[in-house]
Design a protein around this nucleic acid. Structure first.
Length: 499
RNA sequence: GACCCCAUCGUCUAGUCAGGUCAGGACACCGGGUUUUCAUCCCGGCAACACGGGUUCGAAUCCCGUUGGGGUCACCA
């Protein structure tokens, strides 16, 4: 049997460092055993999935050096590799489950479900999840309501007693009472499958032999195992990897730590350095050496050697490892190549030149004009940053901008400008007054290259870092203030919608 | 709250599965040396088996409990 593993990210937002981490382990395991590593796009959530995000996943995984044998862009014998293109398959299998009595139509409203959940929670009941109301519907009634075109979902039947026992390669036997397992929706009212169904169906058809995924999935393993049983399929070997953590030990999140792979790229980390560091999370080379390549990790890889404690993602340690790559693994020629790849390339300069050409008298002016485009944070003192306004007010504007930027689907100067204009209007200030602190936060100078262009070029993550840094310089915002500001911002959004 | 997972220096970890160098490496930090500065490099130091019970001649290592941390409880993945 050929070992086949997969990484199955959902294309929402920026490519996540956790995706690269899980992909790395799946890649190493597959390659170590001469198998294949598959990329599958889990885009069953129509509301959140974007093709831009999908493309970024391809680019980001390739950037760190993880190539897949099969995937949406490279094809393969088990395609399509995009779940949105496999709808008929899920529909067919769902019908099969309904037919066999393993799944049922559910017409319950979201209101009823919310009320149910509310009640279960407030009563402190250990029983949670769907109460099975629609299971008792007669065949005729179901047929009638379907004929009427009533909105419905399809749920799986889950035992109400006993416990589910399954195996995890690293943890051994895990037992979870069935009462803890919800009658999961398999097919949403939009006719698309949920993760649980699509995942099982695809892993089976794609002949995935080993599922290595984040620990957060342990509690849904019973649903998956049950589905495999219902279908009469063999279940892949399960291996739950410890979750990457913030310095405070909570699950890695972008509020507390940079999580976008693009941040690491823009910051000037080498992909080899980043991947090497990810290889330190939950893994150690047999000889405990710190610096190793992907190939070396593949050679040495032993799944049972994965450590289970949740590793804190420590940016300083990543930096020191990256430093070793920079100075020990590159000769000067290669260093030049990498530097050119990073920023000193035609593509980057072609973004910059239209902005600077009109503003230089000599080439030597170039550095002064663009220094802030090549660094991470810039320093400005609080007084300058305030530009004569109240610190509180400036912090509010900066904070609003960060929040809005984070929510933006597309990052370009038009969308950035849109955010700034709305906020400027809200503040009641003239544009030139309003943007002053932004220029200072972004460039460290009262005047610089056009703001929106600068932000677009620097990218969302570094823009966010600089604005947050400016807020901190101004004294920072406490929890209470943040709460108040969040309210104000929400009200602003409602206002905008009603217009 | 219920359920599940986890537990060695501040951080990543080796050692745990086949109990007997009570603990090694790396980052960070501190001190010293090389270097025209800085960085690199070299040497040294600080620093951990969460706690309590067992089992055993002997436990970081096996068992139980406690505590702590994390995760999950969606028509998101």
């Amino acid at each position: 049997m050929t070992v086949r593993t997969r990484i199955a990210p959902s294309p929402t937002g920026d490519p996540h460092v956790g995706t690269a981490y899980v992909a790395l382990f799946n890649y190493c395991f597959a390659k170590k055993h001469g198998g294949q590593f598959v990329l599958r796009i889990e885009d069953t959530d129509q509301k959140r999935s974007t093709s831009a995000s999908e493309q970024m996943i391809f680019d980001a995984l390739r950037w760190v050096g993880l190539e897949w044998d099969e995937g949406p862009d490279v094809g393969g014998p088990h395609g399509p590799y995009r779940q949105s293109e496999r709808s008929e398959l899920y529909a067919k299998h769902t019908a099969e489950l309904v037919e066999k009595g393993h799944a049922f139509h559910c017409f319950c409203s979201t209101e009823r479900l919310a009320a149910l959940r509310q009640e279960q929670r407030s009563s402190g009941s250990s029983v949670t999840g769907y109460d099975g109301l629609c299971m008792s519907l007669s065949k005729d009634e179901v047929a009638e309501r379907l004929a009427k075109g009533e909105s419905h979902v399809i749920r799986m039947v889950v035992p109400r007693e006993g416990e589910c026992v399954f195996q995890d390669v690293l943890r051994g036997e895990i037992r979870i009472p069935w009462t803890q397992v919800d009658m999961q929706v398999l097919m949403k009212s939009d006719g698309l499958p949920t993760y649980h169904l699509a995942n099982v169906v695809d892993d089976h058809h794609m002949e995935i032999t080993h599922v290595m995924r984040g620990e957060e999935w342990i509690n849904s393993a019973p649903k998956h195992q049950l589905l495999y049983e219902y279908f009469g399929w063999d279940m892949p070997v399960l291996c739950h990897l410890p979750l990457l953590r913030n310095p405070d030990k909570s699950k890695l999140s972008k509020r507390k730590n940079p999580t976008s792979l693009w941040w690491y790229r823009e910051m000037g980390y080498l992909p080899e350095g980043l991947l090497n560091y990810l290889g330190h999370m939950a893994w150690t080379m047999p000889d405990e050496r710190d610096l190793f390549t992907l190939e070396e990790m593949v050679d040495a890889f032993k799944i049972e050697k994965i450590a289970l404690g949740g590793p804190v993602f420590d940016v300083p340690k990543l930096s020191s490892l990256n430093a070793r790559w920079l100075r020990e693994q590159l000769d000067p020629e290669q260093f030049i190549d990498r530097l050119v790849d990073w920023r000193l390339n035609r593509e980057f300069l072609s973004k910059l030149v239209p902005l600077v050409q009109q503003r230089v008298q000599r080439f030597t002016d170039l550095i002064d004009l663009t220094d802030y485009m090549l660094t991470h944070l810039v320093e400005v003192d609080a007084e300058t940053l305030q530009s004569g306004r109240e610190a509180e007010e400036v912090m509010r504007d900066l904070y609003f901008a960060v929040q809005r930027f984070t929510a933006l689907d597309e990052w370009n100067k038009e969308s950035i400008e849109g955010v700034i204009r709305v906020l400027c209007e809200h503040s009641g200030l003239k544009m030139r007054v309003f943007v002053k602190p932004f220029y200072l936060a972004m460039s460290g100078k009262p005047s610089a290259l056009p703001l929106f262009d600068s932000m677009e070029i620097l990218g969302r993550d570094i823009t966010r870092d600089r604005i947050n840094h400016a807020i901190a310089t101004l004294g920072g915002l406490g929890k209470k203030k943040l709460k108040k500001l969040d309210k104000e911002l929400a009200a602003l959004a409602v206002l905008a919608e009603s217009e």
